[in-house]
Simulated assay, not measured.
Amino acid sequence: MERNFEFYLKEISQNFQGWDFSYINNRFVESVKEWSYHSLIIPYLLQSKSLLDMGTGGGEFLSILPFPSKTVATECYAPNIPIAKSRLQPRGISVISLEDENKLPFTDGQFDLIINRHEYYNASEVARVLQPQGCFITQQVGPDNDIMLNQMLGAPNPEDYDPNWTVDFLANQLADNGLKIHTKRSLKYITRIFDIGAMVYYFKAIPWQIPNFTIELYKDKLYELHQKIQKKGFLDIESQRYLIIAQK
């Protein structure tokens, strides 16, 4: 196999912390989406007095937002906790480790704004800790996100793959718990991969996409994709996102 292919496979040994994909910037690029989650939440943040950020990762995204003085972040992935605390606590943000994602350790009506980017949530718990007239804004990853990679590699679907997990399903869950749906959108867009090393790094960062992924198990298929990228210059895959804005 080609020497540069073997070089790219070493990307799996690169360190990944929090939710920081800067290492593969310009090597793994998303096309322009129909909305910007960042831009959408800014007006809500500027009017908010109390904020809950669900699934803060390493706090990378929250740290660049104009958050209110009463801001709390949760995270359930243990390796991210110390990273988030070191980044957010000096700025006055409490970081709470969740042991049970279906039970939020907060009093009823504690927050007037809850944001959630790509994190699991329990609709009844979101409704419980949200203040009357408070808003919940979430961007979720659809079940068909990057599924082309699984298919190209002959890999099984992600462990939690569920084609019935639609934006309508999520919106109905929230509505059933007393929230009014203001925005409900779904889209598919292109993610362009420029080298096989960026793909390998990506699989390490999101191990749920291909369960039990190893280079040894998928090396031949990875080489086939590497050759396609070398010939065309890139590989395009389809990504999927949902957006819901709801109010109590």
Rank of each mutant, 00 (worst) to 15 (best):
E6Y: 13
N15Y: 11
G18M: 00
G18L: 03
N25T: 11
H38M: 09
L40A: 04
I41R: 05
I41H: 03
P43Y: 12
L45F: 10
D53C: 00
M54L: 15
G58T: 01
S63G: 08
V72A: 07
T74P: 06
Y77F: 14
P79F: 01
I81N: 10
S86R: 11
R87S: 06
R87C: 10
R91H: 09
I93Q: 08
S94M: 08
I96N: 09
E99H: 13
F106Y: 08
D112E: 09
L113N: 05
I115M: 08
A127N: 00
R128D: 12
T138D: 04
T138S: 12
Q140I: 01
G142T: 08
N145P: 12
D146M: 11
M148L: 07
N150Q: 12
L153G: 02
P163E: 10
N164Y: 03
W165V: 04
L170C: 06
Q173P: 04
D176P: 08
I181Q: 03
I181G: 11
Y189H: 14
I190H: 09
D195H: 01
G197A: 03
A198S: 12
M199N: 04
K204Q: 10
W208K: 14
W208N: 15
E216Y: 04
K219P: 05
L222Y: 06
L222H: 05
E224T: 01
L235V: 06
L235S: 00
L235N: 07
L243G: 07
